[in-house]
């Protein structure tokens, strides 16, 4: 086993199907290659979905929809762009995209870290529930919509309706915000949040100063925050 763990398993998706690859990645939870290099992803869907082991994955090229969805423990690096729903419902581990990510990156993510070196499109971190997201570029409209937990760090600009109907996620933006969503307000960047942000930037290997960011969060004024409405649920 020791020898197998040291070698890098190569999978060429122009020769093998995503279904075969994903089955092998799932089987690796019970032993087998721990380090993988995937070539010719060619925009295929659901590459590496459902990994449940501390594997190392390098993907050379652009991936399609729902890449490494539900990821648990694996460290994934995508040398290209990602399609809709990157690392959807990520549980833990780290997913890094060298290029851009399409809409709904890290949607509903419960844990782990997602790093986008380029821009993320609309709905980044929609309904996030504990994942941390660091975007070096910009994010599109409705990012952090109904975001419940975790942190969304945007080193560039944010589009319209940022943090609409947000719960307890911490949002940090260095650039401009086109428009804040309903019930999302700017908040003080205190000591706790500066430390959290500094830690996330370091973890994501981003050279930026926490003091240059502004923090946004929930005003907690929407209907669901009012105790008098508790009976309605």
């Amino acid at each position: 086993m020791a020898a197998a763990e040291q070698t890098v398993e190569q999978v060429d998706l122009s020769r093998s199907t995503v279904r075969e690859l994903n089955q092998r990645l799932h089987d690796a939870a019970d032993g087998g290659p721990q380090s993988w290099r995937i070539t010719h992803p060619n925009g295929l869907h659901a590459i590496g979905a459902g990994i449940n082991a501390p594997l190392e994955l390098e993907i050379d090229g652009h991936v399609g929809y729902y890449c490494v969805g539900m990821n648990k423990e694996a460290t994934v690096r995508i040398h290209g762009n990602a399609g809709v729903g990157l690392a959807e419902n990520i549980m833990s581990g780290t997913v890094t995209v060298d290029g851009d990510a399409s809409q709904s990156a890290a949607a509903t993510g419960r844990g782990g870290l997602v790093v986008v070196r380029g821009n993320a499109a609309a709905r980044c971190g929609i309904s996030m529930k504990g994942v941390n997201i660091v975007v070096e570029g910009n994010v599109g409209h409705l990012s952090g919509f109904m975001a419940q937990k975790g942190a969304l760090v945007v080193c560039g600009d944010a589009g319209e309706a940022l943090g609409d109907s947000i719960y307890e996620t911490h949002i940090y933006v260095r650039g401009s915000v086109a428009e804040l969503g309903a019930d999302c307000i700017e908040k003080e960047l205190g000591e706790f949040h500066t430390a959290e942000l500094t830690g996330l930037l370091a973890e994501a290997d981003v050279d930026a100063n926490a003091a240059d960011f502004r923090r946004y969060g929930s005003a907690r004024k929407l209907y669901n925050f009012n105790i008098d409405n508790a009976d309605a649920y």
Binding site: N42, G43, L44, G61, H62, G64, Y65, N81, G83, G99, D100
Partner: peptide, 16 residues
């Protein structure tokens, strides 16, 4: 989707 662009010659080096 990018899938449809990936089949073009030189897609891997093209700006996307």
């Amino acid at each position: 989707e990018y899938r449809a662009i990936a089949v073009l010659p030189g897609a891997e080096d093209a700006r996307v």
